[in-house]
Simulated assay, not measured.
Amino acid sequence: MTTTTSPRTSAEEPAPVSIGDRLVGDGQPVYVIGEIGLNHNGDVEIARRLIDVAAAAGAQAVKFQKRTPEISTPADMRDVRRETPWGEMSYLDYRYRVEFEREEYEKVAAHAADRGLQWFASPWDVPSVAFLEDLDVPTHKVASASVTDHELLRALADTGKPIILSTGMSTLEEIDAAVGILGTDGLVMLHATSTYPLPPEEANLRTIETLRARYGVPVGYSGHERGLQISLAAVALGAVAVERHITLDRTMWGSDQASSLEPTGLEHLVRDIRILEKAMGDGTKRVFEGELKPRARLRRVDSLASAGAPAGASVGA
């Protein structure tokens, strides 16, 4: 990737980024990511069912999280006792209990491919980058919590893969430093606010344009809100990708379940995104075919008809 350390100043449109066989950016279909994360609770069958949910809804990708527990678990948390569906255990043992290893991810990868979906993950430590590279993921996702982990960012930059960077809980200066390591070639940013669940007053969706103007890369949205309205508004404001946590049932055990979309919610989100894509148009003011009969019936003076303008003609930019 090409390294840049200064904010962008030109007004040119960001070029789309290739993620495997898909283009993500302006003029392309919104790239919808079903964030499975740890909502599989360490169960491959639940992961398969969530992949099925994403495929049935029309998403393009599913995302997981990959950790090396002894590295990514804070030392002061490792021995803390925790009640889980599998009984009381230390937090470190719990992290191992819900973590997929190679055998599980090979099954996940095969099922995602069968359903026509891309899959990738957020690595939380350097060994996890190598783990995911060995499985040949098409991209890597930087979690908002990892924006300031420069060792991890350097390992990701060294892969040469496109990178999706979430920007929650981060200042512009912290994002500048991350971009200085990752570069902008092959970079997609996701505007995010890391409050779970997200209250509307913290969504700050106009930041989508702030990030696009500053860094000159495609910008999407990663949402943690309840409902669909904020994610749809992000698309209307130009988000080129939308990531939402998904679950089979919001009452399932796990910290992300309550702010996740159930199958019907994801289906409705993708449906409404595709409607919005059609509705946004190209910004040229014109008279459409469907307006001609109402115009002929309702207008007493018709300048188009008197000028002999063709149907659908532009009447000003």
Rank of each mutant, 00 (worst) to 15 (best):
W86F: 13
A178E: 11
G58H: 07
T195S: 11
S90K: 04
Y105V: 03
Y31H: 15
S166C: 12
A311I: 02
R115E: 01
I46M: 11
Y221A: 11
V179S: 12
G183W: 05
R97C: 13
I19D: 03
I33M: 09
T139G: 04
F64D: 00
W124T: 02
R300G: 07
E209Y: 10
E243T: 06
H140L: 15
A15S: 15
H140Q: 13
P29W: 13
Y221D: 05
L292H: 11
L198I: 14
A11S: 13
D114I: 00
R49F: 00
V98N: 05
A317M: 07
S18V: 02
E101C: 01
Y96K: 12
A109E: 04
E277K: 12
V108T: 04
I36E: 03
R82A: 09
A177N: 11
S255R: 10
T247R: 04
A145S: 15
V32G: 08
V53G: 02
A56H: 00
G254M: 06
S72Q: 03
M280Q: 14
R97S: 15
G223S: 12
Y94F: 15
H245V: 07
L269H: 03
I175Y: 03
D176T: 11
A155V: 05
F64C: 00
L248H: 01
E70Q: 10
D125M: 04
R154E: 15
G290C: 06
E277A: 11
